[in-house]
Computed example of a mutant assay.
Amino acid sequence: MTTTDSFRGLVCTATDERYDATATGTSDAGARLEAAYDYDAVDWGDGRLDGAPRSMWRYADLLAFADPVTADEGGTPLVPTPTLAEEVGIGRLSIKDESRNPTGTVLDRGLSPAVTAAQAADADLVALATPGNAGQSAASYAGIADLRSYAFVPSRAPFSNKAMVNVHGGDMRVAGGRYPEAETALHEQLESEWYTLQEFENPHRHDGIKTVAFEIAESCSWSRPDAVVVPAGTGEVVAGVVKGFHELREIGLIDALPPVYAAQPSGCAPLAAAFERGADAAEPWQSPDTIVGELEIPEPKGDQAALSAVAETGGEIRTVDDEDALESAVVAAQHAGLEVGPAGGVAVAAAGELATDGIVGPDDHVVVVNTESGTKTADVLRSHLMGKGI
């Protein structure tokens, strides 16, 4: 296993005890593991990234593995959307379009190093439970690494995700019900020993997602936008993006963190409810009900990480109704030419709410992260239009 020169191991967030790069689960103290780096060894100023790959591995100095399992994930565009900006009253509105990743999701950034860790650990089998996108992504990277993979998905997962798990060579098991039933099925039905690719159990997932922040800042000439809006389900995208901005501050490329606003569907919003209570952990959401399946996570593993991350930036956690999320995704497609999924629509709608409430305005640059391709759930978006008589 070859790690990068700046990587210092996985660190217990409670005790600072260090663990090997392939460790999974919690620390001996029962706390979350985080990838740690020597920030003094990293210098990206004065054109030092010139000639680096146009992928997330452009930033390999702040990633764990020197020889990753990769399909050139990352390097996605930050797309200006002046028509949308004018409609909602924001000076500049840009969409970080993660639909351009190899399997159409921001999660590719995390599954690439997570599967690399599995390969380094000499794993034979990798597995996870997922609402959909992570299973497709995991199967893709496991296929590149020649590893067996299992994805347990709820029955309501999009057909495209289910089909592509198999197309990429992975095994899939469908659990009746919703995401919690898929998690239960993973632990009850998979009898072989497996290396986990689950969010936060495998810390490289959100560590890879931090490269979204690196790319946003570099696209803005190493400055920070006035606000970043991110859809939130498990909490890994929120935690990863904030970690990225934190590390940019550590190496001196930005002077402060931008406010990061997380957005959840109102039908399943445990992080928003916890934030409103001022709690540092979320309570399980009773009776989750949202069309945005990727964000229907009633008991997010990254609740504490996401809540503390948002608070650190001075942001908030907002809720959006399903109809507003779907309409925002459709409007983004029609006026910005982007295939925004329902999860991205949640973030676009939340940005509009921030403008309505005067939190962002005509002088601000707001970045919205579109976490998935709209083609994954084209039937959902089309049904929304049919409901309007279109």
Rank of each mutant, 00 (worst) to 15 (best):
M1F: 13
E17N: 10
T22V: 15
T22A: 12
T26I: 06
D28C: 05
D28G: 11
R32Q: 15
Y37W: 06
D38E: 09
Y39D: 00
A41Q: 10
D43F: 11
D46W: 05
A52M: 09
A52I: 06
S55T: 15
S55G: 08
V69Q: 01
E73Y: 06
G75N: 09
P77L: 04
P77T: 01
L84F: 05
E86N: 10
V88L: 08
G89S: 03
S94G: 04
D97A: 03
N101M: 02
P102I: 02
G104F: 07
V106E: 07
L111F: 05
P113A: 10
A120G: 02
D124Q: 12
L125M: 03
V126L: 02
P131V: 13
G132I: 00
Q136N: 15
Q136H: 13
L147C: 04
R148Y: 06
V153M: 15
S155A: 15
N161P: 03
A163P: 04
H168I: 05
D171A: 13
R173M: 11
G176P: 01
R178N: 13
E181I: 00
E183M: 13
A185R: 13
A185M: 15
H187A: 01
Q189N: 12
E191Q: 14
F200V: 01
N202T: 11
D207K: 12
E215V: 00
I216C: 05
P225A: 09
G233T: 04
G233Y: 03
T234I: 13
V238T: 14
G240D: 01
G244F: 04
L248V: 11
G252W: 07
L253N: 03
P259M: 08
A262V: 04
S266E: 13
S266H: 09
A269R: 00
P270K: 01
F275A: 14
F275V: 03
E276T: 14
A281Y: 10
P284V: 12
V292T: 07
P298H: 10
G302Q: 03
A305V: 08
L307F: 12
S308E: 14
S308M: 04
V310P: 00
A311K: 12
E312N: 09
G315M: 10
D321K: 11
D321S: 12
D322C: 07
E323D: 15
E327T: 13
V330D: 11
A333P: 00
H335S: 15
G341V: 04
G345Q: 08
G345W: 07
A347E: 06
A350C: 14
L354R: 02
A355Y: 06
G358Q: 01
I359Q: 14
I359P: 00
D364N: 13
D364H: 06
H365D: 02
V367N: 06
V368S: 06
N370D: 13
N370E: 11
E372H: 10
S373N: 13
K376R: 15
M386K: 14
